[in-house]
Simulated scan of single mutants.
Amino acid sequence: MPRHLAVLAEQEREVSDYAREWVARRDGFEPSPVCVLRPLAGAMDLVSAAFDALDRRFAALWADVVDDVESALAGLEAADLDASASAALLHRDVAGAGA
């Protein structure tokens, strides 16, 4: 499970990196001083900032998810160990009663 969570986190980083590098580019709107789309170049800074904010928010929330999953896994492993120990004791008692 932790490996899958790490893969998902990496995918989010890849999408955000791609968006900042290729979607939020100013250069397509600034080919010349008279380009009618030139005012949109400033909006690309906002798009880039939005992906930065998304990264920070995702990282904070994702850290909580990972912590919770790891805690749940630790609880399940402890329960498995307890069940195994109980089963071993029961098996010993049942085997001893038949002797």
Rank of each mutant, 00 (worst) to 15 (best):
A9E: 09
E10T: 02
E10R: 03
E10N: 09
E12T: 09
R13P: 11
R13I: 11
V15K: 00
D17C: 00
Y18E: 04
Y18A: 08
A19Q: 05
A19L: 05
A19Y: 03
E21S: 03
E21Q: 12
W22Q: 04
V23F: 08
R26G: 13
R26K: 07
R26Q: 09
D27G: 10
P31D: 02
S32A: 09
V34C: 03
V36D: 04
L37R: 15
R38M: 07
P39Y: 04
A41S: 13
G42Q: 02
L46G: 04
L46E: 05
V47A: 06
S48M: 05
S48H: 09
A49V: 04
A49W: 03
A49Y: 04
F51R: 05
D55Q: 05
D55N: 07
F58A: 04
L61D: 03
V65I: 13
V66R: 15
V66S: 15
V66C: 10
V66W: 09
D67Y: 09
E70L: 11
E70T: 12
A72N: 14
L73P: 05
G75Y: 15
A78V: 06
A78H: 14
L81A: 15
L81T: 04
D82W: 00
D82M: 11
D82V: 10
A83Y: 09
S84F: 07
A85K: 11
A85R: 14
S86P: 07
A88L: 08
L90G: 06
L90M: 03
R92M: 07
R92L: 10
R92Q: 06
A95V: 14
G98N: 10
